[in-house]
Nucleic acid binder design. Structure first.
Lengths: 202, 202
DNA sequence: TATGGCACGGTAATTATATGA
DNA sequence: ATCATATAATTACCGTGCCAT
């Protein structure tokens, strides 16, 4: 269920200069003709007639990287200058920068992910520590309350039979965990970094 | 070479009738119609290129997506079958799958990043709440100790002039924060997901 | 041990849009 | 409002490594 129309409309693509696509132009037979030369390793240059340079030279790459390092954006002037210096088509320089920016963005994402990951890990450890501490303190508080109750009882009974202070207990020590303070923008601890409209506090 | 870069207007070297692809729908008002290209240049290099029919049909894409959805890997049999069904070179099917997997991975990374980000955010909020709670409890504990001290003093002085119990204070309530328990593999709270050899606990 | 197939990472180029000067 | 650049999404190719024959 498909290709009856199968766009025959645009066969013979690009072409540009001399190279006609050796394969695909004619259906069938495939491009099995391609990619036959492994093993020998060493030079990959076989006698293939049209096989344009896929990959820029070491020289060109280092220049491009250098330029990219100083500024990710590419103004017309810089582009033309680089193209002339490297013997490339300005279009190629522009394309290189576009792709380079895309790569940079991906890499950046991975980096930020790792950073966030470790911060998250340590934050969890600390949160755990705090939870333990809270439990421990509740226990201590409970003990303290007990002690206070005991002492007050003792004071009341030995002080004056008609004592007036100390109702029955404190007014609610150890209440639970509703201490308000839900506003996120608190102190946190220091560092912060931003990523696409979002600020991360560490 | 023939670099009279005065023009720079002929981007899109492709030239060659770009048979538009109305299939996408899109009510956009593309007022674009690029034309021409130059570059007879034979000087040094090239331009590479030997692409074929860029853009697979809507039909082909949906079939490929469907297939990808059921299984990311592509065995030879499935490849040949798909290629035949869609009228594509098996090579194209293989390439499509490779690229699709790469895209999927990137997308996955972004998703995981978002997830991790929100978990981190909520963890920070909770950590903050815990810190506040700890502070609050230390305060309460301090008050309790004060009260205990007061009461003991009262008991001591009113009890028996030669009291013997109650040294001076508790043995160190509110000591600080060394409650041990630094082992990360604790309870945490529930969910967990994995990402490249790393497990994230929520 | 050699070979063919495929996955994967990296890279070049193209197409389609959106936006700024 | 045109032209150049930017980004996102695609298509394709290469080189390497793994694996199964």
């Amino acid at each position: 269920m498909s290709h009856e129309f199968s766009d025959m409309s645009e066969y013979y693509p690009v072409g540009i200069i001399t190279q006609f696509a050796p394969d695909q132009g004619m259906v069938a037979e495939k491009a099995k003709t391609r990619r036959r030369r492994r093993k020998g390793k060493g030079g990959d240059n076989d006698g293939d007639v049209m096989m344009r340079k896929r990959k820029l030279s070491e020289e060109q790459l280092s220049m491009l990287e250098l330029s990219f390092g100083s500024e990710h954006k590419l103004e017309t002037e810089r582009k033309e200058k680089l193209a002339a210096e490297l013997g490339l088509d300005p279009r190629q320089v522009a394309v290189w920068f576009q792709n380079r920016r895309a790569r940079w963005k991906t890499k950046k994402l991975e980096e930020e992910f790792s950073k966030l990951r470790s911060h998250h890990d340590s934050t969890l450890v600390e949160k755990c520590r705090l939870q333990t501490e809270v439990l421990r303190m509740k226990e201590l508080l409970s003990e303290a309350e007990t002690e206070i109750g005991r002492l007050r009882e003792r004071v009341r009974s030995s002080d004056s039979p008609a004592g007036s202070s100390g109702q029955s207990m404190e007014q609610g020590f150890v209440g639970g965990g509703e201490f308000g303070m839900e506003g996120l923008e608190s102190v946190f601890c220091g560092h912060a970094f931003q990523w696409e409209d979002h600020v991360y506090y560490m």
